[in-house]
Design a protein around this nucleic acid. Structure first.
Length: 978
DNA sequence: GCAAGGTC
């Protein structure tokens, strides 16, 4: 009998496959890993009797890493990481699984791979193959291709085994390598460049702060920053709209102006006056139609995360944790799925049947199953299918498990923690506090479990329900040539909305209207029978000219962020929440109570730095291009080697360029953070840039450094073990390592340095700019050192004299930090000693303002309380074409959109609005005043009137722009009218 | 100390 080793991607799949193939006639035994059991049974594959062993891995078995020589951060120039050798190996925590595979593979003839049928799954398959082949070269290897864990699919897959797909696996290998090289190089570069130079206040422990860069995390950060900049640069603009209301016995109708709104006040007033003078409204059109509101598509992971965030304010990370636990406990299907359509083979009725007994939604489930109600509808297709998992749906009935909170392993963990705490504390009160804390965690976790389960069940029931039906009436009227419209809706059948309580679709009744000139006898009769007075003409109850201001978009919510990532292909359904969490963990963003994200100073500075360099490293395009290439590899259109070569070459060029332009990052950081004295405490600060391999210790690299006096040297990164150093001429003002390599000096490569000298300190005949080599071949450097020394101030302090042989390189001398540490020269800006000119506090404070795109926000200047919400306003400077340089106050609360131009503030009196340029004398404009006055009287407008923004959202809580009084708006302000 | 992707 042939012995077949079957390997699945996860234990649950191994169990399902084994159960289906064996028809539940199987034996289970433990492997070396406690989670990955081995199932045994007999099975026939294409008539061949087989003894099947089914086991699993837990996702990827291997990790890709740099060779040991490159693992330490200072071991090499980060640029070397684009070519440093890498290896794929099984990490410590996966060794048990590896051993199980080896032991079983030795005894088997065939290896059948049941990994998920996507690119990652294929790659894991090759990892499993590598391990198994390592101990049994004669294995026959086959791949099982299945799209769902249902009997038909699994049996079909077992009888139609195919060959593994090398292209799919190659695509993942390429992705892994690119991610590692880009991520590690940029992370090391920006961390070493910035961490010690600035006081980054967000971090508790600066020493361990890592400023990571990743091809997924940075574009995610980019979305947050971009929206923040959009808000910052938004300049509120006042607009005007005419509103008409009509109240009759049958109700109230609010007609909105079909022009929407106008930004030109005079035009608005003219049109408004025309309406006021001829206010009779003629009904021009009455349109009645049936409207359907469809239930959502079946639930995918991203949709689950978005909805849980929207409905329950759960973070995506929390949602995935809770969903995983529900899945482990068997209550819901696999929670990581892109699929939003059910297979025609899924038995949807049985799932609904299970819920008939539920105390809350049981009766709805019963109605669904009753053909007489006509409530059932086959779910619609969302158009996504990952071919591995069905949409998330309930798999086990629960009537609200009170035991969830006690049974669950997460709670077990919490209990363990509390037990530990119990043993650690002796005080009774401490124990009580720990117990209370544990209880509250249990309660809140159980609460999350129940809410998410409810969402999954209700969503599923909604999917198989008819859409809600409404009768909508749209009425169009004409007043003095201006068109207005109002709509009303009557819900005829709620259908899915009965169970999907998270969505609503309200009734809004309006009086009955009929089209003017066409009121037929039939219509009159109908109106009479209905006891309503059908109107074809009427006089508005109120006709108002209302003002509003355009508002910036809101900060990105978690659901918005997930949508952005999904749309741009950043991350996968299983990892998106990880990227969001990483931004929070790295102090790049913060999340407020409304689940809205703002960048921190650190996040904004990093994006600003790269943006100023002109790179789109923080935009999603890079990842999209990579994804495109990966797809090409998986389809066999491009080879892995080809994609790796081009992509890494481009990224290395980009990285080297970023290094050259690192000053942009430093400048951006300097806007938000104070310089740190940590980097000055040392003799010199490492720029982390490789100049050449160290010829003395032959282990580390020589890197370019600048000491606190501003003098440059090239020292071994192995300091203090290796004290090899090359001192550079004193007049060096700037030194930047280039990508050019010296042709003659060894050991190489020796990168040439672009020098800029202080004009007044170099002898005549020498050029201010010089591309030099520190390897020993550079005659110019040698002569300059001979003439000028290696820094007059350092020499004056008695640093070891540098000898410069006439025909040799600048001398290598041991460094002596103690002797080069003192600094006496006064700062050129403030004439104080104790700091370098580059770190002068007077300069830092002068440049320390937050600079955003479109807005210069000046901190520390006097502010006024917002007249709308009382939150302090921030003084900003407009940077738009029309108002560049003009200052305005805007409310610092995100929930409020108050703003006022500074030049309109009247000696500290209440803020008033800025007149628009084309109506600068509008306060004394009789037509404007007259129009407004009559309007107010006509309309009888009350304080509760709502402003509507440009995006159609109501703006609540606004006050008059002119005097701040909430009882009226700017257009009705008595002060302006007079 | 670094990425992103699987998964317990």
């Amino acid at each position: 009998m042939i012995k077949v080793l079957n390997v699945a991607e996860k234990p649950s799949v191994a169990k399902s496959v084994a159960t289906i193939l064996s028809r539940n006639q199987l034996r289970v035994r433990d492997g070396r890993s406690r989670y990955n059991k081995i199932f045994e049974f007999n099975y026939s594959i294409n008539g061949q009797q087989c003894h099947m062993l089914v086991t699993s891995v837990t996702g990827h078995l291997m990790e890709v890493e740099f060779e040991d020589r490159y693992r330490k951060w200072h071991s090499c120039d980060p640029a070397d990481l684009y070519t440093a050798p890498i290896r794929k190996h099984v990490p410590e925590d996966k060794l048990d699984i590896k051993r199980t595979l080896e032991e079983e593979a030795r005894k088997c003839h065939w290896l059948v791979l049941w990994l998920d049928c996507d690119r990652e799954g294929e790659n894991i398959a090759f990892e499993v193959m590598e391990v198994c082949r390592g101990v049994n070269r004669n294995l026959t290897i086959r791949r099982a291709r299945f799209s769902a864990l249902i009997e038909r699919d699994i049996h079909e897959a077992a009888q139609n085994l195919i060959a593994p797909n090398q292209w799919f696996s190659d695509a993942v290998d390429a992705r892994q390598e690119i991610d590692l090289r880009i991520g590690a190089s940029f992370t090391r570069f920006q961390t070493m460049l910035l961490r010690d130079r600035f006081v980054i206040d967000s971090a508790q422990d600066d020493k361990n702060l890592v400023l990571s860069y990743g091809p997924c995390q940075f574009p995610t950060l980019g979305f947050v920053v971009e929206r923040y900049w959009e808000i910052q640069s938004h300049e509120p603009e006042e607009f005007w709209t005419i509103n008409c209301t009509h109240r009759s016995d049958e109700g109230l109708a609010s007609f909105s102006w079909m022009r929407g709104h106008l930004f030109d006040y005079t035009s608005s007033v003219i049109l408004y006056e025309m309406c006021v003078e001829e206010p009779t409204a003629t009904v021009m059109k009455v349109q009645q139609q049936e409207k359907l509101k469809y239930p959502p598509y079946p639930l995918s992971t991203i949709e689950l995360e978005k909805r849980a965030s929207r409905y329950f304010r759960m973070s995506s990370e929390q949602t995935m944790k809770v969903a995983e636990d529900l899945y482990q406990a068997g209550f819901i299907s696999y929670p990581r799925t892109e699929t939003d359509c059910f297979s025609s083979r899924t038995d949807l009725h049985t799932i609904v049947q299970e819920h008939q007994e539920h105390p809350v939604w049981g009766s709805y489930a019963q109605r669904l199953l009753d053909p007489g109600t006509g409530l059932w509808r086959n779910p619609s297709n969302g158009g996504h299918d990952d071919k591995a998992h069905p949409p998330i749906h309930p798999t086990k009935f629960s009537a609200g498990e009170s035991r969830w909170s006690q049974d669950h392993h997460v709670v077990h963990f919490l209990l363990l923690v509390s037990t530990f705490a119990w043993q650690s504390f002796f005080s009774f009160w401490s124990n009580l506090a720990v117990m209370a804390f544990t209880e509250s965690l249990k309660f809140s976790y159980s609460h999350f479990l129940q809410r998410l389960y409810e969402l999954v069940v209700r969503h599923f029931l909604a999917c198989v329900s008819q859409p809600a039906v409404g009768a909508e009436t749209v009425v169009e009227i004409d007043i003095a040539g201006e068109r207005f419209s109002a709509s009303g809706r009557v819900i005829l059948a709620k259908n899915y909305l009965d169970v999907y309580r998270f969505e609503s679709w309200g009734d809004s009744m309006i009086p009955v209207y009929v089209q003017g000139q066409q009121k037929s006898d039939g219509m009159k009769l109908w109106a009479k029978l209905k006891h309503v007075r059908a109107l074809d003409m009427f006089n508005p109850t109120a006709l108002t000219l209302d003002s509003g201001v355009t508002r910036p978009p809101p900060l990105l919510s978690e659901a918005d962020l997930l949508s952005c990532m999904d749309k741009a292909g950043i991350g996968t359904d299983a990892t998106m929440h990880d990227h969001i969490k990483k931004l929070l963990d790295r102090f790049y963003v913060t999340k407020d109570a409304n689940t809205r994200f703002s960048p921190t100073n650190l996040g904004e500075a990093l994006v600003m730095g790269y943006d100023d360099m002109g790179y789109e490293l923080w935009k999603p395009n890079l990842r999209s291009l990579m994804e495109y290439d990966m797809k090409e590899v998986s389809m066999g259109n491009k080879s892995k080697a080809e994609v790796l070569a081009t992509c890494l070459q481009q990224m290395k060029a980009c990285f080297l360029d970023a290094k050259v332009n690192k000053v942009k990052l430093l400048e951006a950081m300097a806007i938000f953070f104070n310089r740190s004295d940590r980097s000055n405490g040392d003799d010199s600060s490492a720029l982390g840039e490789n100049v050449r391999p160290c010829g003395l210790c032959q282990e580390a690299n020589m890197v370019l450094r600048k000491n606190r006096d501003g003098n440059f040297m090239v020292g071994c990164s192995g300091y203090p073990q290796c004290r090899n150093a090359v001192w550079l001429p004193g007049p060096v003002l700037e030194a930047t390592i280039t990508n050019n390599i010296c042709n003659s000096c060894t050991p190489g490569p020796v990168y040439l340095i672009q020098f800029k000298f202080r004009q007044l300190e170099i002898p005549p005949g020498f050029n201010v700019n010089h591309l030099g080599c520190v390897g020993g071949c550079d005659e110019t450097l040698r002569q300059l050192i001979e003439i000028c020394g290696t820094g007059s101030r350092a020499q004056a302090r008695g640093r070891p004299t540098t000898t410069t042989p006439s025909n040799g390189p600048p001398t290598t001398t041991p460094r002596n930090p103690q002797r080069s540490n003192s600094r006496q020269a006064p700062c050129i800006y403030c004439y104080q000693t104790g700091h370098a000119s580059t770190d002068c506090p007077s300069r830092i404070s002068a440049t320390r303002h937050v600079q955003s795109h479109g807005i210069n926000q000046q901190n520390g200047e006097s502010s006024i309380p917002c007249s709308t919400c009382g939150t302090p306003c921030v003084l900003r400077t407009a940077n738009t074409a029309n108002n560049r340089g003009r200052k305005f106050y805007s409310c610092s609360s995100q929930a409020c959109n108050f703003f006022v131009w500074e030049d309109n503030l009247n000696n500290g009196s209440a803020p008033r609005s800025a007149p628009r340029p084309n109506i600068s004398n509008s306060a004394s404009n009789p037509s404007r005043t007259g129009g407004r006055g009559r309007g107010v009287q006509n309309a009888g407008r009350a304080a509760g009137v709502t402003f509507v923004s440009a995006t159609g959202e109501p703006i609540s809580g606004r006050r008059c722009f002119v005097c701040g009084d909430p009882s009226h708006f700017a257009n009705a302000c008595p002060s302006r009218g007079s």
